[in-house]
Design a protein around this nucleic acid. Structure first.
Lengths: 124, 124, 124, 124
DNA sequence: GTGGTCTAGACCACG
DNA sequence: GTGGTCTAGACCACT
């Protein structure tokens, strides 16, 4: 489990941590029951305050991604696969809706959009 | 020229103002040479501090959308059409790039994406 | 708006603050649109760290009781009265359910319970 | 004597153990002189550290529910029936007092309360 | 002035 | 060892 943070980014540190842990869960790198690094260990690794890592874990717990037990640690929680899928799709849909709105605002055609899409799709 | 601001949004007030003026320029509602409402008038209309409207106009001027002349007011500046287009496209491209990245992260196929896109495209 | 905290209680400070603000909203002392004391003012009044008051306000916002705007302050949010009522009732129901369970566990009769209830009901 | 612990509960493990042993004594499942499982056996059964079971037994001994004799084990202690009753009632009274306080806070009437009470009373 | 984020310590309860 | 709470500062962006 590798987490990389950019101290100069505009995104809050704890958000970056959350984001990467979520991604790892999405990707299957972190699976149900896996232990996350301890608050203090992660804080030391990232050269970050304990309160920052705690904030990230706390948010993840509230969103149902992890469960934490005092004295034991923080573990990836059992997220029902179809619920997880639902969340992922909703995020994409929101992004898509916004994009379409912006695209229409500047008057791009559907096919121009498709081309642009394919451009980025092939890229990587 | 109607500007609506949401006081409870998480987006800063001055950003909301900027955004809507830009949109009006994109859409052609505001054209080269048109006068923007005076700082104080706009501030009064939106129940907002003059500092806030000033901040919005200043940013817009720095980005080349408007020009302010002391004693006369603020006017939509001559934005070269192809420059304007360039900006618009860059914004779309950024959005598209991010979307594609997210889509790949959760393993959606290209055609599923297209379907989703069409869904929102037809919608409105 | 008077908030009293007991530093020696087992209940976390931020919980005590949350609780009392919620109570004030329930009771109508704080109404939709009212401003809450600023983070720093409240912190000074209660001789508490800013981060503690912030934590309380943050939780209240997440639960929908208040809305906070950077640079302006924190305000009581528009909680639909019937939604509010719903929450209140659910809390009572949970308490009642637990009580009944405990009462049955030790074999108290229904009428003994009623008597006990009336005892506390009249008391105040 | 069956003890079930939930590893993901927010209630400390040793509290869960205490609670269930007390309940068994209240219910008569465990009677004066009965032997409790040994520290190590219980720890193994629950997949819990011995420190945790020790903590639970120690607390129970301090509260007078059990007596531990080194080399022999832990046994349910002779709790005077009327003392036991006293404890049980005090717990119920505390719960009742809190409930009445909450109920009054949200302005429920006495009869509404009674109805709610009966609802849960009949339920099981 | 306001809230948003962050630090580098600290003490406590739990295992 | 773990997480939970709290402090007393700090800097930043927004109004």
């Amino acid at each position: 489990m590798e987490i990389i943070i950019a101290n100069n980014s505009k995104i809050p540190l704890f958000e970056q941590i959350k984001e990467q842990i979520k991604d790892a869960i999405y990707a299957g790198t972190l699976k149900d029951g896996d232990a996350l690094p301890s608050l203090r260990q992660l804080a030391k690794d990232l050269h970050v305050s304990v309160i920052t890592t705690k904030r990230a874990y706390e948010d993840l717990e509230r969103e149902g991604f992890v469960v934490t037990t005092v004295g034991k640690g923080t573990f990836v929680g059992a997220v029902e696969p179809h619920i997880l899928r639902e969340w992922q799709l909703r995020e994409i849909e929101n992004g898509m809706e916004e994009l379409v709105r912006d695209v229409k605002k500047i008057g791009l055609s559907r096919s121009e959009c498709m081309d642009l899409f394919d451009l980025y799709w092939e890229e990587e």
